[in-house]
Amino acid sequence: MLLLNDSELRSFSEFSFERRFDERGAIRWMQLHWSKSFLFCALYAALVFAGRHYMKPRPRMNLRLPLVFWSLSLAVFSIVGAVRTGSYMFHVLSSSGFRRSICDQSFYNGPVSKFWAYAFVLSKAPELGDTAFVVLRKQKLLFLHWYHHITVLLYSWFSYKDMVAGGGWFMTMNYAVHALMYSYYAARAAGLQMPRPLAALITSAQIGQMLMGLLVSALVFGWMPQGDCPSRLDNVVWAALMYLSYLLLFSNFFYQTYLRRGAKTKSQ
């Protein structure tokens, strides 16, 4: 097991709430209660499809101001999370190399990163609220949308309790992509005209995240037998299947939205 030493951990500048955070208690809680994520997902799915049925004969809601507030809140959270976890990952990469950045478990209990790792996994529950705006505004509900929300919540809670290798990469990448994505959503909801290439850039970043997730999963699988990259076979398998399905779905979305539709527009 690879862990940063005390002198390396003390090199980070911490906020008081990050320093006081009890990661051991958080991990114990998740070990006892992670299965409740299935309840959240079942309730989410029921409310989503019941909500669509309820809204079918009713006019769409505007919800512009609540959507601005919602997206802006998640954007700020994701930006701060990306900066704080990114600083940790950059430190490990620059001081100890790529392998250690994947296999090191100190992401779960180090200063700065320990709070944001737990905040990340918990945030996947309230992020389900994204779909409420889709349903109430009667927008098209993609399979990619609700499938992604459900599987990220299940995998995040399942993995955090075991402090599996690769978590630092998974969480930091997601924070960074969400920082860009929710900032874009907030600007759109506020009525700002956003350039179309920016939307394509966000989807491209998501595809890149999935490719990197597959690479990290493959490396963890290859390094596990050596004993210094702690994970479990079932976790690696679920991670690989999850990232592969995301890669296919996001790639198809990119093709249908930006390539095929763009080609049709030019031909008209």
Rank of each mutant, 00 (worst) to 15 (best):
W157M: 08
L211K: 00
S204K: 08
M163W: 12
F158Q: 08
A190Y: 11
I207P: 00
L215E: 02
V164F: 12
M173E: 11
L214E: 02
P195G: 10
S204T: 15
L201I: 12
Q193R: 15
Y182P: 01
A200F: 11
Q206V: 08
W157C: 03
K161V: 11
D162R: 04
A190H: 04
G167H: 02
L198T: 10
S183V: 00
G208T: 04
A199Q: 12
I207M: 01
G191K: 15
A189I: 03
L198I: 12
F170S: 09
G222L: 15
A187N: 05
F158G: 00
H178R: 09
M173F: 14
Q206N: 14
G167A: 10
D162M: 01
W157I: 00
G191D: 06
D162C: 01
M163Y: 06
G167S: 13
L215D: 00
S183P: 07
G166D: 13
F158R: 10
V216L: 10
S159Q: 11
S159E: 13
R196G: 09
Y160G: 01
R188A: 04
F221Q: 12
G213A: 10
Y185W: 13
L198N: 06
Y182T: 13
R188Y: 02
L198K: 07
M163T: 12
V220T: 03
A218T: 02
I207N: 01
Y184M: 07
Y182A: 06
P195N: 09
M163H: 06
S159H: 05
A186P: 02
Y175R: 02
L201Y: 12
H178P: 03
A189H: 11
W169A: 05
A186M: 05
M171W: 05
